[in-house]
């Protein structure tokens, strides 16, 4: 019997069966900017302009909330100030003269993140404003996440996979049962990070694929002392009716990791969402 799917299934079954349940499915699209400095590959700061999508599921119960989310993004990726860099043809004409054609050096950044977490309600509050109810709840919990960054740039920057166990703190405020604001902070405690080895190349003597080789040669355990990935999420949802809602959400991330050479990343994402309960 495979252990991992079973472990994911247990919390799903628990939260699905609990009373006073509130299940929400969410889809979203957005726009993201990423800035990155990967000293292992380049001294240049890179930036991107990405389209993003989101698929999410949240179950809110009396004692806590379960959250599962898949985010994906892709977009142009280039050194700041060098958007239109040219690669001149290094070849020669048959008469020995250098060729004069050129092409733009283009690149794309891809990133994806999956998060699964559970947070327990630690306290809640209640007040009445203008005869309408304002409820607030605070949660503390943990999540497992995996995020992958990959670029097809010639210098192979931004290649990184991070699987982490994160501490999470959330605050939800709901006004008049229609307006909901939520804020979440997530900080990894431990992680298994994978980057290219120091020499920034991939080859294996034993016939392993490139992906297997990168994970074999480039993976290390990390902790908060050498790996920081602070994520902030803030969102507003408006319940159009009991079943359907719309919202606007912000996601920001700062990441820094020391191996093999330091990589720093800063991301901002704004998106609109639609949810079904």
């Amino acid at each position: 019997m495979k252990i991992k799917p079973f472990l994911i299934l247990i919390p799903l079954l628990v939260v699905w069966g609990s009373k006073a349940q509130n299940n929400k499915f969410q889809v979203g699209i957005g726009y993201q900017r990423t800035w990155l400095l990967d000293n292992q590959a380049s001294p240049l700061k890179y930036q991107s302009s990405e389209k993003t999508f989101l698929l999410g599921y949240t179950h809110t119960g009396n004692t806590g909330k379960f959250d599962a989310r898949l985010n994906g993004a892709w977009g142009n990726f280039f050194p700041t100030g060098f958007y239109n860099r040219k690669m001149y043809d290094p070849g020669y004409n048959p008469d020995g003269t250098p060729k004069s054609d050129s092409g733009l050096i283009l690149g794309t950044l891809y990133n994806a993140r999956i998060d699964i977490g559970y947070a327990w309600k630690v306290n809640s509050g209640y007040s009445v404003i203008d005869n309408k109810k304002l409820e607030s709840r605070n949660y503390a919990g943990a999540s497992l996440s995996n995020q992958l960054f990959y670029s097809d740039n010639i210098v192979r920057n931004a290649w990184m996979n991070s699987s982490s166990l994160n501490a999470e703190f959330q605050h939800d405020a709901q006004y008049n049962a229609r307006h909901t604001i939520n804020i979440k902070i997530s900080i990894p405690i431990f992680a298994r990070n994978t980057r290219l080895p120091y020499h920034n190349s991939v080859s294996s003597p034993d016939g392993s694929s490139h992906i297997q080789t990168i994970f074999k040669q480039g993976s290390r355990m990390a902790w908060f002392g050498n790996f920081q990935s602070i994520r902030l999420e803030a969102g507003y949802d408006y319940a159009v009716n009991k079943m359907f809602g719309i919202g606007i959400h912000y996601f920001g991330q700062w990441l820094h990791y020391n191996y093999e050479k330091p990589i720093s990343l800063f991301q901002n994402n704004i998106g609109i969402t639609a949810s079904i309960k």
């Binding site: 380049s42 240049l44 690669m87 210098v155």
Partner: peptide, 18 residues
């Protein structure tokens, strides 16, 4: 094996690492 690296002016240079 060879890798490419960049200069602050955006130029590329290539380095044999092995």
């Amino acid at each position: 094996d060879v890798i490419s690296r960049e200069l602050p002016n955006g130029w590329l240079y290539f380095v044999g690492v092995g």
